[in-house]
Design a protein around this nucleic acid. Structure first.
Lengths: 244, 244
DNA sequence: ACGGGCACGGCACTCAGTTCCCTGAGATCG
DNA sequence: CGATCTCAGGGAACTGAGTGCCGTGCCCGT
């Protein structure tokens, strides 16, 4: 670079002024600008650092890989979610708790709708980024599953239930999130999320998805068509009640 | 290579004899030998092709990436599963069908227990391979979800249910598969899988996880625990009766 | 003024993955 | 029988991601 040899001090000062939230943001901005105007794979790391006016080595100081620049706040988001799970008093209903954790993550996405939508468009068309996103989402799923495993430790099939419920919650979250992203961040993300998580809670929650404040009594309904044998009906009731 | 310049014909013939199920198998064998004795990341593609006695270019003819050599039969396995789903008459119970598809995949893993266990050990400790495995598993999940989306097209929240159920089935499958792999391929993989899928079917299936071979007559049992509101119970009964 | 962190930059290296082209071994056809 | 076509494989050179090493300028405290 020519200017750096003539007046390095000025350059450094100018850079420091631009990058108050240091250089990281500048790299993200430069990267997304190039990704959007010429595509992810057509953009090299050298292109990014050239636009950002920094050294190539600095890029890899802030982002372990080229993919990571697409998910700049992933670590913070994951940390927030695990902190939320750890912050509980321990007597919450576990499935409801992980659903709330999912809502929290959605909230973080919804903080920057424009950015989230841009990233969604990128990950949708670049296979490499889709693959990377999977490993990102996987860590959320593992965090949820670990929380549930601890809460279900005493339960029969506790680990299995934990894995399945975590996967279901993540799938519901992704379904709602993606439909919101597809609408360019218009529409009510929270409502869609509540609806999706309601399905999961109705399937797995110890409490159903209902109004919850008006719970009359326990209800057992048995409908048996065309003369089922009594032992079969009893068996069904027993196995259902034993589920708890 | 010295011999190739002196007697290329002989070399080619010898190689052809070794690689009856052509060269692909030789590359997989060489790769796993090196991965096991010195680790995945410590093994370069050049090492593999040197041991297999083939050209570097040939490796990438058979495997699009270094990771792919760890999942050599993935494409065939996925094709088998989608073929199974497509082969149905269309009147099967959808959740049961995707569970059977998961059982089919387990069966393919169980065909080569030693190989599956080796791969499991590798993917467990190499982060890059774990990430790659996620993208492999993701394609199975998408195939299941696509099948369910088609079957649930008329249902309310059909896409959401499809995504959630596919995720739950995959999670149950992985849970059972991994516990079997952890036991070095001893133990009954099928029993663990049936048990895990039973949980999913009891949560989502239109039919419970019944013995299936001894279904005396139609029986529908709806048990609602801990005070579900009446509208919810009625809804369940109606949707259950409307199913058949 | 001096020395030690510290953040950044530059250089050179490894390795995955790709492109282009060469070679030799059948198969086909005149 | 020979010319040619095709095609699996090999080899060399290239791109680009990611890493290690070290030099440099800047900001500290003393």
């Amino acid at each position: 670079m020519s200017s750096s040899s003539t007046a390095p001090g000025r350059d450094a000062k100018a850079r420091a002024a631009d990058a108050k939230p240091p250089m990281r943001e500048a790299l993200v901005a430069a990267a997304f600008q190039l990704f959007l105007e010429r595509g992810y794979e057509q953009t090299t790391v050298d292109d990014i650092v050239a636009l950002a006016g920094v050294g190539r080595r600095s890029f890899f100081r802030y982002f372990p890989s080229k993919e990571d620049v697409v998910f700049p706040d992933h670590e913070r988001c994951l940390a927030d979610m695990t902190a939320f799970l750890a912050a509980g008093t321990g007597d919450e209903e576990p499935v409801g708790r992980v659903c709330d954790a999912a809502r929290l993550v959605l909230g973080l996405y919804a903080e920057n709708p424009a950015f989230s939508v841009q990233r969604y468009r990128l990950t949708k068309k670049v296979p490499g980024l889709r693959a990377y996103e999977l490993s990102v989402v996987w860590r959320y799923e593992r965090a949820l599953a670990e929380y549930l495993r601890a809460r279900f430790a005493s339960r029969r099939d506790g680990n299995l239930r934990a894995d399945v419920i975590a996967a279901a919650v993540v799938a519901a979250h992704n379904n709602a999130l993606r439909s919101w992203l597809r609408s360019d961040g218009q529409g009510d993300a929270t409502a869609a999320m509540d609806h999706a998580l309601g399905l999961v809670q109705s399937a797995f929650g110890t409490a159903p998805p209902p109004p919850a404040d008006e719970r009359p009594e326990d209800v057992v309904v048995v409908v048996s068509r065309r003369g089922a044998p009594l032992w079969r009906v009893v068996q069904e009731i027993e196995s259902t009640l034993a589920r708890d």
